[in-house]
Amino acid sequence: MGNFSAKVNKFNDIFVNQNGYVTVLNGLKNTLLIAVIGLLIGFVIGTLIATVRVLPKYKRLPRVLNGICSFYVALFRGTPIVAQLLVFYYVLFPLIGVRMTGVQVALLVFGLNSGAYVSEIMRSGIQSVDPGQMEGGRSVGLSFKTTMLMIVIPQAIKNILPTLGNEFISLIKETSVVSFVGALDLYMAFNYIGSNSYEFMVPYLVMAIIYIILVLLISLGIKLMERSLKKSDRRN
């Protein structure tokens, strides 16, 4: 074990004395930023797509929109996120001549990607709400849009909150691939510390522990949120 404590000392030296913690904090910031913004963008896109998919289909426009949304979901669920990152960073943006940093591309791609997943989650959430809720809203003269926004979607969100939390957790973990486009995330920060000391055992161990702590904290947050949303359930 003497060997191991030497490694810990080495890590400690870089982490504390050579400002390794600054890199780690920056990486942590980017990881959280990409996951949070990604989920927010994904939530908006996902809700829109889910709404399109539950629209009544007897008119032409909803059918066309539905086709577009199906294509979008198939595209983003059917390719690995690494491929999406690489295509956006090395193909799409250079082609249209826009310069973007790795983090910006990652924000966009994670948002688009999770939009595809959230749309399916949201659709099942909307379909789990009693159709009578929509009828109740329509019967008093509220439009489809208003009823959806004020009655159906809030109830759908309550139903899908645990699943949405899982999506957030998997987003956090998936951000570890953004180093492919040169963005500094939690993994990259520890990789950097490891390369400086030629010693990877302790940095990667600490990295894994930080990931676990993050995920546990988020699970706790979801649990608390669910509890506060249970207000309108029977037992209170």
Partner: peptide, 11 residues
């Protein structure tokens, strides 16, 4: 309109 299953807004 009044429904058989009330359809009050649960939220």
């Amino acid at each position: 309109m009044v429904f058989q299953h009330f359809n009050l807004f649960n939220n």
